[in-house]
């Protein structure tokens, strides 16, 4: 089912900007168009590019916000989320918690 949804209409998760757009829905209650426009603006991209793996692969590496192929040396897990919080100017609870404890 997940694969069918993903193929038909999914943004692409961390292959693209799916997680970033999702964060705007969770943190600011943004509808999809507003969330995409916000993320595209932060990344200085067009909205359609947010779901394009060829664009987002490089963008994710440039901002060091986590890459699906687990490239050695690139940020992973909580480290990638720290960069995402800064990039999108959003609260990420686990990141805040990590900062409070380090």
């Amino acid at each position: 089912m997940s694969l069918a949804h993903g193929a038909a209409a999914g943004m692409g998760g961390i292959r693209t900007a799916g997680d970033l757009v999702a964060r705007m829905q969770l943190t600011r209650k943004m509808r999809i168009a507003e969330a995409k426009a916000y993320v595209a603006d932060k990344l200085t991209l067009g909205v359609e590019e947010l779901s394009d793996v060829t664009v987002m692969r490089e963008v994710r590496e440039d901002y060091d916000i986590g890459i699906v192929t687990s490239v050695p040396g690139c940020a992973k897990g909580i480290k990638a989320k720290m960069h995402i919080a800064e990039l999108l100017d959003v609260n990420i609870n686990s990141v805040n918690r990590m900062k409070e404890r380090t």
Binding site: S2, G6, A7, A9, M11, G12, G18, A22, I32, A35
Partner: peptide, 21 residues
């Protein structure tokens, strides 16, 4: 067999029941 949205119309997927899938 499979149809899809037009590029630019993609949406966010959440996964209720999550790990249990």
């Amino acid at each position: 067999r499979v149809v899809g949205v037009q590029p630019g119309n993609e949406i966010v997927l959440s996964h209720d029941i999550g790990t249990l899938h």
